[in-house]
């Protein structure tokens, strides 16, 4: 088990008094795609947002348990949340480019990290866009507003923007839920390519997508982690009854 990237230990999350995640314990392997599935409201997105501490932004949230990334507890009081987010990037459900040019969107991350050199920035913009497989589409219109792009392009731009800060782990929160089938397949393809370099955790409510893209799958239900394992085995011979019910479409 030497390639475990994230080790979650008894992690519980509360919104005020309401328990939203119940003692989650799981291991997330490095350089693999892990899919989190489950019916809506099951806590999968909430869990994802725990990994880069986005839930810190909600004042009523409190968290117990441990979230060890390469052995470091990111909820330790000596850990800097800003540095964590630089290393753990996030792509959101709704594409959210800044109302700036395409170039500025990609350069945003490097710039806030203090990068000023124009050639260096150019280089990062190009490699990020290439990695996100969108360079050919956008290379001639880098100065156009990002808001003029199509939904699928915007989402890939957001992925490129995340790559530009060279993270280690990429969290994707239903990245293709608002997209058409062609854009979705492009994103899935992209996820496939990226896993060589990055550890990817993807939340999806689309089971085919989970089956197609992920190596491991975790099934969440009502704030509990019901089952986790290799995607193949989860989809073919789930251990838990609830998992089977969900996968066969009996609820959710």
């Amino acid at each position: 088990m030497k390639d475990i990237k994230i080790k979650v230990n008894d992690l519980s999350l509360y919104y005020g008094d309401k328990k939203a995640l119940n003692e989650i314990t799981m291991d997330i392997p490095a350089n693999k795609v892990t899919a989190l599935i489950g019916p809506s409201g099951c806590g999968k997105s909430t869990f994802l947002r725990c990994i880069n501490r986005m839930n810190d932004l909600i004042p009523s949230v409190s968290i117990t348990g441990k979230m060890l990334v390469e052995g470091v507890d990111i909820y330790d009081k000596n850990v800097d949340v800003v540095n964590i987010r630089k290393k753990i990037g996030m792509v959101f459900q709704k594409s959210n480019p800044f109302p700036k040019s395409i170039y500025e969107n990609i350069a945003y991350g490097p710039r806030i990290n203090g990068m000023k050199d124009k050639t260096e920035l150019d280089e990062i913009v190009e490699t990020s866009l290439r990695q996100a497989a969108i360079w050919d589409e956008l290379k001639d219109r880098l100065d156009d507003s990002a808001l003029g792009l199509s939904g699928g392009q915007q989402q890939r731009l957001c992925i490129a923007r995340t790559l530009a800060v060279s993270p280690d782990i990429i969290l994707m929160d239903e990245p293709a839920s608002a997209l058409d089938p062609i854009s979705t397949s492009k994103i899935e393809e992209l996820v496939h390519q990226l896993k060589e370099q990055y550890t990817i955790i993807i939340v999806t409510h689309n089971m085919q997508q989970a089956a197609r893209t992920s190596d491991h799958t975790a099934f969440f239900y009502m704030g509990n982690l019901i089952e986790m394992g290799k995607t193949n085995s989860i989809f073919t011979k789930p251990v838990q009854k609830q998992t089977e019910d969900y996968i066969t479409g009996r609820f959710g």
Partner: peptide, 8 residues
Amino acid sequence: EASLALGA
């Protein structure tokens, strides 16, 4: 959130 997730 986009900005914060980028480490700003």
